[in-house]
């Protein structure tokens, strides 16, 4: 309980809330697009590098490979659960449900970054290679969503042809966020603590302040989305946006227990499994499933699930991971 209260009163959450409230109140507060992208690049660079340094300090073991495998399986599988749940609890069309489901198999890197920040504040260590797991979980869910749409849609038009699908896969795998995250991870791994010592003043001390500013922007984007698309959100969709993260986190917990991750690692894998993408998957869905309504999946991911994970989910996952690991 105290963890949840501490989390709600942390600068991270309060800046996010400020952004949401400012957007709902129609304030002219904005973060320019280029600044938002720069903040995002900084966070990916810092989290990737620190993850690589951590792996270089602790070495590579079988748990790393198992975690990568678990992340891939979770990303492939979660959209099927999400799709089934959406079809039962909402009136969404097959295409819309497939597009939303794809978001819930992939991950939100900022939710992951926020969770690592909470772990650091609580002094709980975690496996650095989970950064690589985050990167590997981005793409498989998109394939699942496309397969679901092709299998269950009665629309005569195929979502995307094979040639286009290869181009799409290439775009996803070479997505700037993934390239920077994995690249920074490898550089951190190669340079280790010596490399970290050289750039520590840039990527460690300012990290939380930059994350606060980024979450302010995320709050603004989420608030704008809620303001303009709230009419799209029926009770079933809102319920799904809060239930699906818990289901994903439960699957992540099971995988973490099988692998034998630490308490911090378990909380992070739960967070990854619970989060919903708002960068890679929406762009892929615009290309591959153009008939799906972006207002639904962007608002679900950013306006419902992201705030849920930030405020309730992360402390909940950490508490469960601690209880199971104790």
């Amino acid at each position: 309980m105290s963890l949840a209260v501490d989390n709600l009163l942390s600068p991270l959450i309060l800046f996010f809330a400020l952004g949401v409230l400012a957007a709902l109140a129609k304030s002219d507060l904005t973060v320019p697009e280029a600044a938002a992208k720069t903040l995002s690049l900084y966070l990916l660079f810092a989290i990737g590098f620190k993850g690589g340094v951590s792996v270089s300090a602790h070495g590579i073991d079988s748990a790393l490979l198992l975690s990568l495998l678990a992340g891939t399986v979770l990303s492939f599988a979660l959209p099927f659960i999400a799709f089934g749940l959406l079809r039962v609890t909402t009136q969404l069309s097959v295409t819309d449900a497939a597009a939303v489901a794809g978001h819930y198999g992939s991950i939100s890197i900022v939710t992951f970054v926020a969770a690592t920040s909470v772990l650091e504040s609580a002094g709980i260590a975690s496996e650095g290679y989970l950064v690589a797991v985050a990167a590997i979980m981005e793409a498989p869910a998109i394939l699942s969503a496309l397969w679901i749409a092709a299998r269950f849609s009665t629309d005569a038009q195929s979502p995307v042809d094979a040639r286009d699908q290869r181009g799409l896969l290439r775009e996803i795998l070479l997505n700037g966020s993934i390239v920077l995250l994995v690249g920074a991870f490898l550089i951190g791994f190669a340079t280790g603590n010596d490399g970290l010592a050289e750039i520590e003043s840039f990527i460690v001390a300012p990290f939380k302040g930059v994350l606060c500013l980024f979450l302010l922007d995320m709050g603004l984007v989420a608030g704008r989305g809620l303001r303009s698309s709230s009419h799209q959100l029926r009770f079933g969709l809102i319920g799904f946006g809060m239930l699906m993260p818990v289901i994903g986190a439960t699957a992540g917990l099971a995988a973490a227990q099988l692998i034998g991750l630490s308490v911090g690692g378990t909380a992070l894998l739960m967070t990854l499994s619970a989060s919903a993408s708002y960068i890679a998957v929406p762009a892929a869905m615009r290309v591959a499933l153009p008939d799906a309504n972006p207002a639904i999946y962007l608002t679900m991911s950013l306006g419902i699930t992201f705030p849920f994970n930030l405020t309730v989910g992360i402390p909940l996952y950490l508490s469960v991971a601690s209880a199971v690991g104790a």
């Binding site: 904005t30 973060v31 320019p32 697009e33 938002a36 992208k37 995002s40 922007d217 995320m218 603004l220 984007v221 704008r224 303009s228 698309s229 799209q232 708002y278 960068i279 890679a280 929406p282 762009a283 869905m285 615009r286 972006p294 207002a295 962007l298």
Partner: peptide, 12 residues
């Protein structure tokens, strides 16, 4: 619906 580039980190 309404859209804006402000603050967006995704091109979506």
């Amino acid at each position: 619906g309404r859209w804006t580039r402000e603050g967006q980190v995704s091109s979506a």
